[in-house]
Amino acid sequence: MINRTHNWGIIGLGSIAQKFASDLKDVEGARLYAVASRTQRKARHFALKFEVEKVYGAYEELANDPDVDIIYIATPHVLHAENTLMCLDRGKAVLCEKPIAINTAQLKNMIETAKQKSLFLMEGLWTNFMPHLQKVNELTQNKTYGECLKVEADFSFKAEFDAEKRLFNKELGGGALLDIGIYPVYLALKLLGTPENIKANCKFSSTGVDISNQIDFKYASGATAQLSSSFARTTPSKARVYFENATVELGYNFHETDQLDIKTNSGVDHMDFNYPSHGYQFEIEHVQDCLEKGLTQSPAWPLQSSLELTETLDKIRNIMGLVYKEDEISK
């Protein structure tokens, strides 16, 4: 039950922020109160489209607004740590889009700051809160079809190369792994835990970021994960989870699908969750529930889970030889 209206602010007004804002308007107790962009014109255009009351041409101005309850950060990856720390320093709860940080050192600093100030902080990994993933996780935890033996997951789409755009720009934290490869890695960690052994290889673009990658996890239990992501080709971007007595297939664009097929010896059980949105409302509802309860982190996606995910991404990048300037700064 929602006891009050939560005033949301959004920093960074790209395509993800547009989807987020679109879903937020239909969430009970949620109000998109303020938005901020480095350009006043972009902020005004966004505010007009989504009927936002306050418009700021500087991130700091939004964070200083006493009526903002929580800030959603949707800036480029390399700004996540800086923007989050700025908001926390001004006493604001933060939902930061994935990846929450470029590396583990940044994230530890963010976590420590949130802890010191007793403020809510969560990584915006929306997939974790969607019905289809909740169902797969339930099947795994309850061992409905026995132990989970293997995870296969791919997320790939053909992206037009542009050295200046975020996807291929190393200065902006570009590369397939951090942008879309995080979803297959997340799925394996969520269902199987931290792997005992990691193998990884990638193809680099001329700008020095990974344009595609292939990752293999092995576990002490014998379980495995085969994960991939790419900007070089378009695929169905499906995922399969193999149990002892069933195979669960997540539909096209597995990170946001509303379709599941559970295949057993008895046949195929098709599940359609049929939600009429981008799917961000589940994450938004959860964050507001946490705020209502006075929590400083999510019980469903705690900061420890974000830390384990970030540490794993660091290990994969180390194997691939992908280094960002933030890694050198953090040493």
Score class of each variant (00 low, 15 high):
Ser277Tyr: 14
Glu283His: 05
Asp269Ile: 06
Ser306Tyr: 01
Gln259Ser: 11
Glu308Pro: 05
Tyr275Ala: 00
Ser266Tyr: 04
Leu295Met: 15
Ser298Arg: 00
Thr296Tyr: 04
Gln281Lys: 06
Leu260Cys: 10
His286Ser: 15
Pro299Asp: 06
Val248Ala: 10
His286Thr: 08
Val248Asp: 11
Glu292Ile: 02
Lys293Pro: 08
Gln259Gly: 04
Asp258Cys: 06
Leu260Gly: 01
Ser298Trp: 00
Val287Glu: 00
Glu285His: 04
Gln281Met: 13
Asn274Met: 12
Phe254His: 11
Asp289Asn: 13
Leu250His: 04
Ile316Asp: 09
Val268Lys: 12
Thr310Glu: 01
Phe254Val: 08
Glu308Tyr: 07
Thr257Asp: 11
Pro276Ile: 04
His255Glu: 07
Pro302Val: 03
Asp258Arg: 10
Thr312His: 01
Gly294Lys: 09
Cys290Ser: 02
Ser277Thr: 15
Glu283Gln: 08
Gly279Cys: 09
Glu283Thr: 03
Tyr252Pro: 00
His255Val: 07
Ala300Gln: 03
Glu283Phe: 13
Glu256Trp: 02
His286Met: 02
Gln259Ile: 11
Gln288Met: 15
Leu295Lys: 04
Gln297Thr: 09
Asn274Ser: 15
Ser266Gln: 14
Gln281Cys: 14
Val268Asp: 15
Lys293His: 08
Ser266Thr: 10
Asn274Gly: 08
Phe282Ser: 07
Gly279Asn: 07
Tyr252Ser: 06
His270Met: 02
Gln281His: 13
Ile316Thr: 09
Ile262Ala: 04
Gly279Ser: 09
Ile316Val: 15
Asn265Ala: 08
Asn265Met: 05
Leu250Ile: 14
Glu256Arg: 08
Thr247Glu: 12
Glu256Phe: 02
Lys293Ala: 10
Cys290Asn: 04
Leu303Gln: 10
Leu303Cys: 05
Glu249Gly: 11
Gly279Glu: 11
Ser277Glu: 15
Glu308Lys: 06
Ser305Ala: 11
Glu308Val: 12
Tyr275Val: 07
Glu285Ser: 05
Val248Gln: 12
Lys315Asp: 14
Ser306Gly: 11
Ser266Lys: 09
Leu307Pro: 07
Thr296Met: 06
Leu307Gly: 02
Pro302Lys: 05
Glu285Cys: 04
Pro299Arg: 00
Cys290His: 02
Gly267Asn: 05
